[in-house]
Nucleic acid binder design. Structure first.
Length: 879
RNA sequence: GCCGGGAUGGCGAAAUUGGCAGACGCAGCGGACUUAAAAUCCGCAGGGGCGAAAGCUCUGUGGGGGUUCGAUUCCCCCUCCCGGCACCA
């Protein structure tokens, strides 16, 4: 670049953008540019605010809110880069976008930090939030911070309490003593959803213990059917997540059948007279093949049966121990089947037959009734068990033969299929299975020893936690009035500060007399306050509604406002929340709808689950020492590069293998874009704002075509499959094409990226050069906001890039005029010919046949078939 | 065991409807610029064989079969990796 031109250009740029510190070379100084825009953006708190009164179409983009651990990790950067790109794209397409952020800020780590560093949880948490918010801002994420939600603050958690009272009013919150999962490290109970392979979800090597505790539960099972059914409506959710939820709910239709204990034969009087064992089965049609009843070792009747039999008691205890151990290592399923006969018999109500009652370690107390009828011929587990203990195996279902002439007298056992007909089953013999299930269930109901039932794997949600840093459950215990809810007007029940936190001896709140001692609102007498706090998944079950009206102090949110924004158009987060958070959120939404607060049945229209960020083939973790710090990446390469790389390295739904050399390449690319614009932004050129001439020289036409193809590719990807990696590749190709065009004019030049001389300009008119650069910046804007804003200004644009219109492509201009298409002989590539895009078949075939290489390849052979695919290929089949 | 997802150069990946496998990027090699380096720009590049070279040729998308003029793509069988569920009666 001639020195004089360069100086002149710099003067222009300096005039437009106040670059006092513009470097003398064209190196892209990302820190300088990012600092400049960071400061500008920070000075305008309303910059990204959603417009509540907008006439535009709404779009609600949401990323899962983080736990404020103190620092963002690369998974966050990736998650939020996807959401931010979508947000910016939707703005540019004219939508009124809501894009909020908040903090899932209750939880145990704050208490651990308090113990270790002697810092109060609130102080520790708010400090972390400040740090992470600063990181997010530095990354340039466009959040409407005026709607920030911090779940550990009373203005939020008071509504958790309010909702709890509503649940209680509707009979959907109840207190019950039950066996619960206890994590000794957390020193609190866990919901079923928080137990992974028998261990705590936060402490993967800590087996949960079973404890008997009084707990508050929410009746999520009331919504089990709807939660299951509505999964079919969630077409915008990944099938994988829907399947996981389906499995989790675990709906199973079957029949309850009562087996009476036999008292006719001599027995030592164990068990209450007339006791019945209710079994659950999905295959009542096989009941004539039942040859024993099997009880879970914890089944209540077992205690009676073993009351005066120390031997039996000891064996049962052993079975319980085996089961517990298997659960702890997570291989209940592989457990070696053991059982013990109780010596007692039960009566099959269908045929009056007496079958032995056993206790077995493969029967689970927490599914169905904790008792089964064992049908060895038609159930794999029962078959294994019967073989081991030499119990009778009685065939009662014959498989339907595919050939009706053929009868299968002895099917391989166990036969567990449903396609069969009954034998050895009295009057039911000859019926097909499905029909028999219906008739036999009806008979059981009629005769009063059974009924049709649906069971679920899903259990009610236990929300009590014996911890400090959570929402106090707003309930009181009065000696006279019993359980009494805190009146709404007394909310919030504030979480006291200056609490001594320990992990031993129950809830820390219980040690504070000034918290525990209260007055009963009914009788005015003394009452004791509930000292448990709520599971933090309560906080995240409805936070996204609060965003719509975050400062409301009379209600959790205004219904009308929420209905304008809901459902969430696009929710983005990790698949690890597929069950926990996402099923609770759906439940909460349905409850709020039944309260009349909202009109939608489901909170989230489209869900996107991004892949993990891994390094060296493993999940990033401190113990592996493969953690990449966002701060370090920003310091070395800039926020744009970190964001762009996290989108470029892999499609967003797949795992991303982080490579420092890869982000280095992105930094180079951003420098290349920067240099091109620095050298070619000439907003003072008289032709700069003129329309692009219709009649362009071929080189310019090629650039124009590439531009329109690029716009199409990027736009299509935003609309469809979200493969931002290929979007970015496409933009790179465009930039490469621009450099190549420059190089073609000045093969010997030090740098090809400048169209300087008159002759170059005549080949690439200023109007086109301007259009290409403007579009390039617009295409880059969702991914690399800092650089894009800088270049937008450099191009002389006055309006805010945030809401500049997304570029449109012209399909005609994007269309290739000539193709180089392959010519195959018998499917093998033999030559290529150049044809015009609209050349008809006969012309192309003629050209292909005339080709020298084709000629020699088919010499002496006969053409059997000619295949022509427009714009794709020619294939000649010869013999 | 069941249900998903995946396997493509040295590496991350692309190929959107069955049509030129490896776009784009990293690392690599060569060249230009430079006293030199960095930075930058240009070019080469799946593997094997032949050739001084242009080029020619064979082969190649985890493995085996099939459908088709043509398969990374569709069908069947198998192996391995990742995720979820699991004596769920």
């Amino acid at each position: 670049m001639p020195q004089q031109d360069k100086m002149q250009q710099e003067t222009i740029i300096a005039g437009a953008t106040q670059h006092a510190d513009h470097p003398s070379d064209d190196r892209y100084d990302c820190q300088r540019v990012e600092t400049k825009w960071f400061n500008r953006w920070q000075s305008d708190p309303q910059l990204y605010a959603a417009d509540p009164g907008s006439a535009k179409k709404k779009y609600y983009v949401l990323e899962m809110l983080p736990y404020p651990s103190g620092a963002l990790h690369m998974g966050h950067v990736r998650n939020y880069s996807i959401g931010d790109a979508l947000t910016r794209y939707m703005w540019m397409n004219g939508y009124n976008v809501l894009h909020p952020m908040g903090w899932d800020s209750f939880g145990l780590p704050a208490e651990n930090a308090a113990i270790q560093n002697n810092t109060p949880p609130r102080q520790w948490t708010l400090g972390n939030i400040a740090k992470m918010k600063a990181q997010m801002n530095r990354l340039g994420f466009a959040y409407d911070w005026s709607r920030e939600v911090t779940t550990c603050l009373p203005d939020y958690y008071r509504w958790n309490q309010w909702f709890f009272l509503k649940f209680y009013e509707k009979g959907l919150a109840y207190r019950k003593k039950s066996k619960v999962n206890w994590c000794p490290k957390c020193a609190t109970v866990l919901a079923n959803e928080q137990v992974v392979d028998g261990c705590c979800w936060r402490h993967e090597d800590t087996p949960v213990e079973q404890r008997e505790l009084e707990q508050w539960f929410l009746r999520i099972t009331n919504y089990a059917d709807e939660l299951l059914r509505d999964l079919d409506k969630l077409g915008g959710w990944p099938e994988k997540v829907r399947t996981m939820q389906r499995n989790w709910i675990g709906r199973s239709e079957g029949t309850l059948v009562d087996f009476k204990l036999d008292y006719s034969q001599p027995h030592s009087g164990f068990g209450p007279a007339g006791a019945t064992i209710s079994v659950f089965t999905t295959r009542v049609d096989t009941i004539f093949g039942a040859t024993s009843v099997q009880l879970a070792p914890q089944h209540p009747i077992v205690a009676d049966l073993a009351a005066n039999k120390p031997d039996l008691r000891a064996k049962v205890d052993q079975l319980i121990a085996e089961q517990r151990k298997a659960k702890e290592v997570g291989d209940i399923g592989e457990i070696e089947k053991h059982g013990v006969p109780t010596g007692r018999y039960a009566i099959n109500p269908f045929n009056g037959e007496k079958v032995p009652v056993w206790v077995a370690n493969y029967i689970l107390m927490d599914y169905g009734t904790g008792a089964i009828m064992s049908v060895p011929a038609h159930d794999e587990r029962d078959y294994d068990f019967a073989k081991k203990y030499k119990l009778e195996i009685r065939l009662v279902i014959l498989p339907l033969a595919s050939d009706p002439e053929e009868t299968i007298a002895e099917p391989p056992l166990p036969f567990i299929g449903h396609e069969g007909s009954l034998i050895n089953s009295d009057s039911y013999s000859g019926l097909e299975c499905a029909d028999a299930i219906k008739k036999m269930t009806a008979e059981a109901e009629k005769r009063g020893f059974g009924k049709a039932t649906t069971t679920y794997r899903l259990k009610d949600w236990g929300i009590s936690r014996q911890r400090y840093w959570g929402t106090p459950i707003p309930m009181l215990y009065c000696e006279k009035d019993g359980i009494v809810p805190v009146p709404e007007k007394d909310l919030p029940v504030l979480l006291p500060e200056n609490v001594e936190i320990t992990l031993a001896g129950g809830s820390p709140l219980g040690k504070l007399p000034e918290f525990v001692n209260a007055t009963c609102p009914r009788c005015g007498g003394p009452a004791r306050r509930e000292t448990d706090t709520m599971d933090t998944f309560v906080d995240s079950s409805w936070y996204f509604y609060r965003y719509t009206d975050a400062r409301n102090d009379r209600a959790p949110f205004d219904s009308k406002t929420a209905q304008y924004w809901f459902p969430i158009d696009q929710y983005i987060g990790g698949v690890e929340h597929a069950i926990l958070h996402l099923i609770y959120s759906r439940f909460w939404t349905k409850f709020m709808r039944d309260l009349g607060l909202i009109g939608n049945d489901e909170p989230v229209e489209r869900l996107f689950t991004q892949g993990m960020v891994i390094k060296d083939g493993a999940k990033m973790s401190k113990s592996l020492g493969n953690v990449v710090s966002p701060d370090e990446m920003i310091a070395r390469y800039g926020a744009d590069a970190a964001r762009l790389y996290s989108l470029f390295a892999a499609p967003p739904d797949r795992d991303l293998d982080w490579q420092d050399s890869g982000i280095e390449g992105i930094r180079k690319f951003l420098g290349r874009v920067y240099r091109f614009v620095v050298r070619n932004a000439k907003p003072d050129d008289p032709d700069w704002s003129k329309p692009v001439p219709a009649d362009l020289p071929p080189q310019a036409r090629a650039i124009q075509r590439k531009l329109h193809q690029t716009i199409k590719r990027v736009t299509d990807d935003f609309q469809g499959r979200w493969h931002f990696n290929t979007c970015i590749s496409a933009i790179m190709e465009l930039v490469n094409a621009l450099y190549s065009a420059g190089a073609a004019f000045q093969p010997d030049a030090f740098d090809s990226a400048a169209f300087q001389t008159e002759s170059e300009k005549s080949f690439l008119p200023a109007a086109l050069l301007a259009e290409v650069q403007r579009s390039l910046v617009l295409l880059l804007a969702p991914f690399a906001p800092y650089l894009s804003h800088e270049l937008w200004e450099m191009l002389g644009e006055k309006g805010n890039l945030l809401k500049a219109p997304w570029p449109k492509y012209d399909a005609v201009l994007a269309k290739e005029e000539e193709f180089e298409i392959p010519v195959q002989i018998n499917g093998k590539l033999r030559s290529r010919i150049v044809v015009s895009a609209d050349a008809p078949e006969n012309v192309v075939l003629e050209r292909a046949l005339a080709d020298e290489k084709v000629q020699s390849a088919i010499a002496g052979k006969q053409i059997v078939k000619k295949i022509f695919v427009t714009g794709k290929l020619v294939n000649l089949v010869v013999r």
